[in-house]
Design a protein around this nucleic acid. Sequence first.
DNA 1: TATGTTAGTAATTAATTACTAACAAGGTAG
DNA 2: CTACCTTGTTAGTAATTAATTACTAACATA
Lengths: 204, 204
Amino acid sequence: MSHSRLPTRQSAEIRQAEMVQAVLHLAARQEPASITTTEIAKVVGLSQGAVFRHFPNKQAIWLSVAQWLTANLLPLIQTAAQSSPNPLTSLANIYCTHLQFVQENPGVPRFIFHELQQPNDSPIKQEVASMLQTYSGILIGVLQQAKASQQALPNLDERSAATLFIGSIQGLVMQAMLQGSTATLEPMSLGVWDLYLSAIRQHA
Amino acid sequence: MSHSRLPTRQSAEIRQAEMVQAVLHLAARQEPASITTTEIAKVVGLSQGAVFRHFPNKQAIWLSVAQWLTANLLPLIQTAAQSSPNPLTSLANIYCTHLQFVQENPGVPRFIFHELQQPNDSPIKQEVASMLQTYSGILIGVLQQAKASQQALPNLDERSAATLFIGSIQGLVMQAMLQGSTATLEPMSLGVWDLYLSAIRQHA
DNA sequence: TATGTTAGTAATTAATTACTAACAAGGTAG
DNA sequence: CTACCTTGTTAGTAATTAATTACTAACATA
């Protein structure tokens, strides 16, 4: 009979990163609120007690996830925002980048929604909220450029346009959740993007 | 010293309805996943055990909430869809009706998202999914009318337009959750609606 | 008034949860 | 070789959860 093999010892830094990935992996298939430390430990391949060697409490894990999100999504969006001299092209690239990120990390939309739902202003919610704030800011900047170059409607309300941008992706995500997989994201995404463009563009 | 007064006895039907309302009331301020039978009982003014006099288990309560949602939201949307000979006006009325419903029942978006998140196909998720399916169907019908009367783009993809419609509201809800109240819904809603209209309308 | 049904309670249960404590072993500096 | 810090385990804890139990009061009606 074989004992379960002892895990190779890893540095705290590595274990922390593994647990953040474990949470995202689990969030892809279940409600974030229902993720337990036991499940996280099992995914990483450690005992439940080991979780608390690397995080003081469960909240700290979630905060790490939020920080991972900020550190990984925002640079992608930033880069996409500056990817073209044409603001509308940049906007399209942000859209694609965001969708690709969601497809590669299906747990992310659930995590975000889960945290925004919280009534209290935990550090976690603040982190997520400020991330979305920054995201919106980037969008508004690109939209202003589009307006300045007369590619967008001259009376465009950038804040509403940013809300609709994020909402359009949210709508696709909901559609995907209805079917139960992120496979549905791709086919619909082009049609929705065409509509968004039609909403803000200066029509001939 | 006074004992806590005995509650006036009510019929099972009334109690069930009260508990559904209690869940929606609680969902307005906290995650649906974290709502306990003890909290529900407290809101209704009964003991925790009494909850199971009227529902066989917790799942049955959530199913009742889903059924309440179908029975109350869909007729409103149906009526709004037929409220005007002008399809674009009807669409605007659906938009307003939906937003007003969300404002009066802030727990509803959370409940829907909570259920769609579930990986398994529970009766609850099926109920919510079919409700949204019907909703989409109504939207697509009105959009087809708009296309037929040449008020919408002739090459409009109705399914994408329906997804963007729901997404636009979802975006507003997210914005409101960022602030922590549904108060933010109203001011932004007009700007987002103008954009949506601009997306689907046949431009002069 | 007697009897059966319905709607309530308080107390308890088994399971699950986040978290802790005592101990073991790997790796490395002195 | 040894002292020590880090990373791991196992075996607990207290708290909370949905659900069940035994029992009681209110109500309807023959």
